[in-house]
Design a protein around this nucleic acid. Structure first.
Length: 441
DNA sequence: TCTGGGGTCCTAGGACCC
DNA sequence: TCTGGGGTCCTAGGACCC
C-alpha cells in the first residue's frame, strides 16, 4: 500500500470502435461493432451506441446482428489501433518511466517514479486531467483514468467513471469503495469462481471480506484464495512493472466450418507454424516447448506439447514437431480450431545446432503437384478496409458482394463523405495502410 | 449460425535426481 | 522388503484477462 494515490490506470473508451468512428466521420453517433463479421467470429468492441442494444465484447457476431442489424460491422484495423496506442503509451512515458501496458488500450503508471513535486490527491487529479486532454488532442480519443494507492483501486476506479471520466480515490477511502462492489469486479473472478463463491453466499466484496482465508483457499485454491482475501481487505502492494517479458508466442485459427480432412489440417498447421516462426523472429525470440492446440467439433480443447533440447525459431522445425503432435490426436470427428504456440522462450535467437532437434518420423505426404499458373485470387474487400481511388482519393470499404465494392470517401478530418460503387477488380481502387491521425493545432 | 485470438497464471501428477 | 522427502522439469487442462 502506498500512502498517496500514485498509481494511475488508464483505459481508452471502446477503443477499437472509437478509432473507427474517429476515422469514419459518417459513423459518429451510430452503433459500430468491430469484429463479428465472420460466421464464427465474436465482437471485439462495440461503440457505446451499439452497447445500448445489449451488444458487448465476446458476444457472437450472429447475436450482435440479431440485436442491431443496422449497426456498422467492421473488420479490425490493427495498424490504426497500434498507431494510436503508441501515441498514448508515449504520453504515459512523459509522466513516469514506470509504465505497464496491459493491452493496446490499457496501462498502469506509477507516478512516484516520475518527476512530480506533489502527489497528493488534488495534484494527481490535475496530472490525470492534463493527461486526458493530451490524449484527446493527440489521438482524438477519450480515455478514462483511475488513481489510487494500489493497482487494484486504480483499475476499479477507472471503470467507475467510464467513459471519458476520472476518479481519484483518496487514501483511506479504498475499503468503502471496494465493499460495495460485486465480487466479479475483482481480478481473477470469472464465471467459474463467481459461481463457486455464490454457492457459499458470497456476491459482494463485503461478503467476501467476511469469509476466513482458509475457507477461500479450500474453495478456489491457494493462490486465488489468498489473492481474493487480500483484495477484499484492500491489500495490494503489487509493483508496476515496465518491460514484462514475453512468455509464449503463437498463432491459432478457427475454421468457418469444422475440418476433418487430415491433409487440409496439415496445410493449416503449416500456416500457423509459419506465422508463429515469423512472430518469434520478429520479436527476437526462440523457444524450446512447442504446443499444438486443437479444439474439437464439440468445443473440447486438447493440447499436446513437446520440449526440444534446444530453442528454435525455425519454421520447418515447428512444422515437423507440430505434425508429429497432430498424429497423436483423433481428429476424425472434425476440428473447429487449430493452433501452434512456442514457450520456454530465450531472450534472443540462438544459432540452432542441427543435432539439437530430434529426428522425428513424420508421415510423408505426397508433394503437391506443381499446379500450373494458379488463377489470380479474387481481391478481398473486408468492411472497414482503408482504400484509395486514383480519382476520388481516400476512403473505406462500406460493403462488398456480387462483384461490387462500395466505398465511402472520407477521412478523420472531413465531414461525412459520399458513397460510390466499383467493380471488385477496378484497377483504380487499391488497399492502403491506415493513415496516421493528424494532431489538430 | 452460440462460443475469436492474443496471451498469463495456476494446479496436479509423473519422472527423475539427490 | 520397505518405503522418506525435497526439488526440478515436463505435460495437460483449466480459469482468466483484454
Amino acid at each position: 500500500m502506498r500512502s498517496r494515490p500514485v498509481i494511475l490506470h488508464l483505459d481508452l473508451d471502446a477503443f477499437f470502435a472509437a478509432v473507427e468512428q474517429r476515422d469514419k466521420p459518417s459513423l459518429r453517433g451510430k452503433p459500430v461493432v468491430v469484429g463479428g463479421t465472420g460466421p464464427r467470429s465474436v465482437v471485439s468492441t462495440a461503440s457505446y451506441e451499439a452497447r445500448r442494444y445489449g451488444i458487448h465484447s465476446a458476444m457472437s457476431g450472429a447475436e450482435a446482428r440479431r440485436r442491431c442489424p443496422n449497426a456498422a460491422f467492421l473488420g479490425s484495423r490493427f495498424g490504426a489501433y497500434r498507431m494510436a496506442s503508441d501515441v498514448v503509451m508515449a504520453a504515459l512515458h512523459e509522466l513516469s518511466p514506470l509504465v505497464e501496458p496491459l493491452s493496446l488500450d490499457e496501462a498502469f503508471v506509477d507516478l512516484s517514479a516520475g518527476d512530480h513535486p506533489d502527489l497528493g490527491a488534488e495534484a494527481v487529479r490535475v496530472i490525470a486531467e492534463r493527461l486526458r486532454a493530451t490524449i484527446r488532442h493527440r489521438t482524438g480519443l477519450t480515455a478514462s483514468v483511475g488513481a489510487g494507492t494500489s493497482k487494484l483501486v486504480a483499475k476499479i476506479a477507472s471503470d467507475l467513471d467510464k467513459p471519458d471520466g476520472l476518479l481519484v480515490v483518496p487514501p483511506g477511502d479504498e475499503l468503502a469503495l471496494l465493499h460495495g462492489l460485486p465480487v466479479t469486479r475483482l481480478w481473477g473472478v470469472g464465471p467459474a469462481t463467481a459461481q463457486r463463491l455464490q454457492r457459499i453466499g458470497v456476491t459482494t466484496v463485503a461478503d467476501l471480506a467476511a469469509v476466513p482465508v482458509e475457507e477461500l483457499v479450500g474453495l478456489v485454491g491457494q493462490v486465488v484464495g489468498a489473492g481474493l482475501a487480500a483484495q477484499a481487505a484492500g491489500l495490494d502492494d503489487r509493483a508496476v512493472v515496465a518491460d514484462r517479458e514475453t512468455k509464449s508466442v503463437g498463432a491459432e485459427e478457427t475454421f468457418d466450418t469444422d475440418v476433418a480432412d487430415l491433409a487440409r489440417l496439415r496445410d493449416e498447421l503449416d500456416l500457423m507454424a509459419g506465422r508463429t516462426a515469423r512472430r518469434l523472429r520478429g520479436s527476437g525470440h526462440s523457444g524450446r516447448t512447442v504446443t499444438l492446440k486443437v479444439r474439437l467439433h464439440d468445443f473440447r480443447t486438447l493440447s499436446r506439447s513437446m520440449t526440444l533440447p534446444g530453442a528454435t525459431d525455425d519454421e520447418s522445425t515447428l512444422r515437423r514437431v507440430v505434425r508429429k503432435l497432430l498424429s497423436e490426436v483423433d481428429v476424425s470427428d472434425g476440428v473447429r480450431l487449430i493452433g501452434v504456440a512456442v514457450s520456454g522462450l530465450s531472450d534472443h535467437v540462438q544459432d540452432e545446432l542441427p543435432d539439437l532437434v530430434p529426428a522425428i518420423a513424420v508421415p510423408v505426404t505426397a508433394p503437391a503437384a506443381a499446379s500450373p499458373a494458379l488463377p489470380e485470387p479474387a481481391r478481398r474487400w473486408p468492411p472497414g478496409l482503408d482504400v484509395e481511388h486514383t480519382e476520388h482519393g481516400r476512403g473505406w470499404v462500406q460493403g462488398s458482394g456480387v462483384g461490387r465494392v462500395t466505398v465511402r470517401f472520407e477521412t478523420a478530418h472531413d465531414p461525412p463523405g459520399r458513397v460510390r460503387t466499383f467493380g471488385t477488380d477496378d484497377p483504380d481502387l487499391a488497399e492502403v495502410p491506415p493513415a496516421a491521425y493528424a494532431w489538430v493545432q
